[in-house]
């Protein structure tokens, strides 16, 4: 086919763009999903890669056959065979059997890995995880450490190598809690609690955020997720304790008002049971669990 000049120009621009993209990708790319920092994200990425590989069995032939057929059977090619009535029951059967086998393989993987990466499942039954309660607000995240008795806004810290169990709710519209480098996001919904178990292999500073659109302040609704050594974590807790501020009911009400780009804040004390109260304020009578995951009801 002859390509007309304006199209050629468009293609040239497009090619230059693609090239620029590739260079930029090499130079500055930071892709947390491709560079996981914990076992959950790693496993989820790998299952994605594996599924991708399995699918190539049926996908690559499409590209190859499409190229060959389109070239060979172009109308101007007088040498090609022309059999307008051609059919093949064998190929017809193969088009069902091969995808079906691949489906069966993938289905097996879905079942196994969905159970393996159930966000509610503790990562290590023999290690007591660090518990963090996460509350989505307009437009920030509040983290409560019930055992340490501290709280923080827009920053969490946890020791590397120790599982962290998140109990998540929302004090506003639906949010989704996600630290891409560590894997697994889950919705935060008012009056309900969802759970998530994560683990960071090494110390590092990651970014977490709400991924579910929630209004004007949504773009800035991110937080720092700091994985640190046990000593650094103790120091971080001590720093919060030294902040002098307390998170009681009145302080919470003030905090819960909509605000964007809320600075990182630490609270030395937290009113006991605050997390449960935040859930309960949406519903006295209706102990609702997120979908059918039993046992995660409001307290």
């Amino acid at each position: 086919m002859r390509i007309s000049p304006p199209i050629r120009r468009c293609l040239a621009v497009a090619g230059a763009g693609a090239l620029a993209l590739g260079l930029a990708g090499c130079a500055t790319s930071y892709a947390p999903i491709l560079d996981p920092q914990g076992p959950v994200a790693l496993g989820q990425r790998d299952i994605m890669f594996r599924a991708f590989g399995i699918m190539m069995i049926v996908v690559l032939p499409v590209f190859v056959l499409a190229a060959i057929f389109v070239w060979r059977y172009r109308a101007s090619n007088a040498k090609a065979r022309f059999e307008p009535e051609w059919e093949s029951n064998g190929i017809d059967a193969l088009t069902w059997i091969v995808p079906a086998l691949i489906w069966a393989t993938l289905a097996y993987h879905v079942w196994v890995y969905t159970h393996a990466f159930d966000p509610y499942k503790p990562l290590d039954p023999y290690v007591k995880p660090l518990e963090v309660q996460a509350v989505a607000q307009d437009w920030k995240w509040l983290f409560i450490y019930p055992e340490e008795g501290i709280a923080s806004v827009n920053e969490i810290a946890f020791p590397a190598g120790r599982p962290v169990t998140f109990r998540i709710t929302s004090d506003t519209v639906m949010n989704s809690f996600f630290i891409p480098a560590l894997g697994s996001q889950i919705y935060a919904m008012a009056g309900m609690e969802t759970r998530l178990n994560l683990l960071a292999d090494r110390p590092g500073a990651f970014r977490g955020r709400n991924t579910q659109y929630s209004g004007d302040g949504f773009p800035d609704q991110h937080f720092a997720a700091l994985s640190m050594t046990a000593e650094d974590f103790d120091a971080w807790v001590a720093k919060a304790k030294a902040s002098g501020e307390g998170l009681d009911a009145a302080a919470y009400e003030a905090l819960a008002k909509p605000s964007s780009k809320h600075p990182v804040t630490y609270y030395a004390t937290v009113e006991p049971g605050l997390f449960g109260h935040i859930i309960a304020r949406y519903d006295g009578a209706m102990a609702m669990t997120a979908m059918d995951h039993g046992g995660a009801a409001a307290e």
């Binding site: 049926v58 499409v62 056959l65 499409a66 057929f69 389109v70 059977y73 172009r74 109308a75 090609a80 065979r81 022309f82 059999e83 307008p84 051609w86 093949s88 190929i91 017809d92 193969l94 088009t95 069902w96 091969v98 995808p99 079906a100 489906w103 993938l106 289905a107 879905v110």
Partner: peptide, 24 residues
């Protein structure tokens, strides 16, 4: 994922319609 099976079938059926045709 089951839906991918009939969809895959369709893609291959269209591909093999090209086969031994005269493509305009």
């Amino acid at each position: 994922m089951i839906i991918a099976v009939p969809t895959g079938v369709k893609v291959y059926d269209w591909l093999f319609t090209l086969y031994r045709g005269r493509i305009r």
